[in-house]
């Protein structure tokens, strides 16, 4: 506390720079296989998706499984800005994220009154509706897809991911984030403590949707083509698995979950059925034996590298 820069943040910064430099270096020297490059960008996309879903599901305790819908909105709006209006990439990404946020706000307003599995199923329905709307819109290519030039580089994807994590973390570790957490912990008590629960649920939902939209925009501007089928509820489940695996409520857990699942998927890409069967078994076993995920609500930190006394500062600062 008090100290704004501590050992922990310095270590994290060094780690982040190192990861960036190693990958950027190998791209520069042209020794990075295209498959690995693709996987790395996908890791970035899924980290943004998982951390933003965690804000809704893990931090605020509102169970949403329609994240692919927001991703789709971000992807298509960003693609439209680039392809139809020849807008710059940054503008496209912001427009996509903003559109997803608006959708999040509008869908959150009525549905966030629902609890638990009812909310889950409503968001799933919403995600599917979004997909079907794009499927039936010939302006964006319908079922055959929408071609978008590839302009996203490792630098873009990486730093946008870092920025997303920082912003979401800053939110969580503020009084506004605590308000969200209090809703997860006990909604009635939160209400009676003067927390406008509706406002904070919608806020978390909107912020989560914003970053899902950003991830969608990155996806659209990297993969050459976007198709409605990509954004089916299976994608939402993929993101959910990452969040659950890492631990609902743990941001670093989501990052970990996204990295592990994306890499495992890439490794098993030749055997898609096996990938999903393994995911399924993992999910079931996890829920039975460790329902809080790998990290629970705790944050993974590098503080064990530092002094012992830093323990509190790193987890609670």
């Amino acid at each position: 506390m008090g100290k704004r820069i501590n050992r922990q943040s310095v270590l994290t910064l060094v780690g982040v720079l190192l990861v960036y430099a190693i990958v950027q270096g190998s791209i520069f020297m042209d020794i990075l296989p295209p498959f690995v490059a693709l996987t790395l960008i996908q890791v970035c996309i899924f980290i943004i998706l998982a951390t933003s879903l965690n804000l809704i599901n893990g931090i605020t305790g509102q169970f949403s499984i329609g994240h692919a819908g927001f991703m789709a909105i971000g992807a298509y709006v960003a693609a439209i800005v680039v392809v139809k209006f020849h807008g710059p990439l940054l503008l496209a990404l912001i427009a996509g994220a903003a559109a997803a946020a608006v959708a999040g706000f509008l869908i959150g307003l009525p549905t966030l009154r629902l609890k638990g599995d009812y909310l889950a199923i409503a968001t799933l329905g919403f995600g599917e509706i979004v997909r079907i709307v794009f499927l039936n819109t010939s302006y964006v290519g319908g079922a055959s897809g929408f071609s978008v030039p590839k302009t996203i580089t490792w630098t873009w994807a990486f730093w946008l991911t870092v920025l997303s994590i920082i912003i979401i973390r800053n939110f969580i570790k503020s009084t506004h984030g605590r308000a969200c957490i209090s809703i997860r912990e006990n909604e009635i008590a939160a209400d009676v403590m003067g927390i406008n629960t509706t406002k904070y649920k919608i806020m978390a939902f909107t912020i989560g949707a914003f970053f899902a939209g950003l991830a969608g925009g990155i996806y659209a501007n990297y993969l050459y083509i976007i198709q409605p089928l990509t954004f089916s509820f299976l994608k939402s489940f993929d993101i959910l698995v990452m969040v659950v695996l890492g631990g609902l409520g743990s941001l670093t857990g989501s990052v970990l979950g996204a990295v592990v699942m994306t890499v495992v998927s890439a490794a098993l890409s030749g055997w898609p059925e096996w990938r999903l069967v393994i995911t399924a078994v993992l999910l079931i076993v996890m829920m039975i034996f460790r329902p809080k995920g790998l990290l629970g609500t705790k944050e993974f930190s590098l503080s064990f590298l530092g002094k012992k006394g830093d323990k509190n500062a790193s987890s609670k600062d």
Binding site: T175, R178, A179, I181, S182, A190, M193, G194, I195
Partner: peptide, 9 residues
């Protein structure tokens, strides 16, 4: 944290 939530408003 419990008390801080009360101070939120």
């Amino acid at each position: 944290e419990n008390v801080k939530i009360a101070y939120h408003q």
